[in-house]
């Protein structure tokens, strides 16, 4: 009876609170940045800012993260580049194209969509978890990352790792009773959602700002972003 109550709490009130903290926190940060003031750029252009920004996004989404050698610089650190790229790809596949998660979206949004077969999503999940471990090890040993990592960076990894692993264990019915591992998974997800607005995991929102700024800055100079 005990775990059923916890599960009901984690899926019910706790989930709703976490969701609201997530949505409210991100909205607050978005609004704050927008209202900080954006001085007009009076520099005459040599090329198109819009085209530069578009190219910057297209490259960022389609090309860069999966083909390290398009940027010569990544000869230096291709493993991290691939781990980072695969981690993000895996995350999107699991969250959007995994059947269990699609059903969560359906209950929130009111409509669903076609999903990928379980084995594909399952392999993606395994790759994603491996990628986190690689990124964690890299952060432990890379001199620059050691210098710039504070508690926030380590907690980011932990709070992303927990929902991933608990979800994986749950999908494979390993070790725990179903309601136990489901509770753990939901609690981990809730903690992550509450944590995101206070952390740099929120980069998914500011990505659209910085990528646009980058593309526009190169575009106006008529340089490939």
């Amino acid at each position: 009876m005990f775990w059923t109550d916890i599960l009901a709490f984690a899926r019910g009130p706790f989930f709703r609170v976490a969701l609201w903290v997530f949505v409210g926190g991100m909205a607050y940060r978005l609004v704050r940045i927008i209202f900080l003031g954006w001085p007009a750029d009076k520099v005459p252009r040599r090329g198109s800012k819009l085209w530069g920004a578009l190219k910057s996004f297209l490259k960022g989404i389609l090309v860069w993260p999966f083909i390290p050698w398009v940027k010569n610089t990544f000869n230096c650190n291709p493993v991290v580049y691939l781990a980072g790229g695969l981690f993000h790809l895996g995350l999107f596949v699991i969250l959007i194209l995994g059947t269990a998660h699609m059903l969560v979206w359906k209950s929130l949004l009111g409509f669903g969509w076609k999903t990928l077969p379980f084995p594909i999503v399952d392999w993606m999940a395994a790759i994603t978890i491996a990628a986190i471990v690689i990124l964690f090890i890299n952060r432990l040993i890379h001199p620059v990352l050691k210098l710039i990592s504070g508690p926030g960076e380590w907690l980011n990894l932990l709070f992303v790792f927990l929902p991933m692993v608990s979800g994986y264990v749950m999908a494979h019915h390993l070790w725990f009773r179903y309601e136990v591992i489901f509770s753990i998974h939901m609690i981990a997800v809730n903690i992550l959602m509450i944590w995101i607005p206070f952390s740099r995991i929120s980069h998914f929102m500011f990505y659209f700002f910085s990528k646009a700024i980058h593309g526009a800055d190169f575009g106006k100079r008529a340089v490939e972003p």
């Binding site: 940045i33 900080l36 003031g37 954006w38 001085p39 980072g84 990592s149 740099r200 500011f206 700002f209």
Partner: peptide
């Protein structure tokens, strides 16, 4: 301003 802040916020410390 927003220009600088948005970019500082976007950094993932990678």
């Amino acid at each position: 301003g927003g220009h600088i802040a948005a970019q500082l916020e976007a950094c993932t410390r990678c």
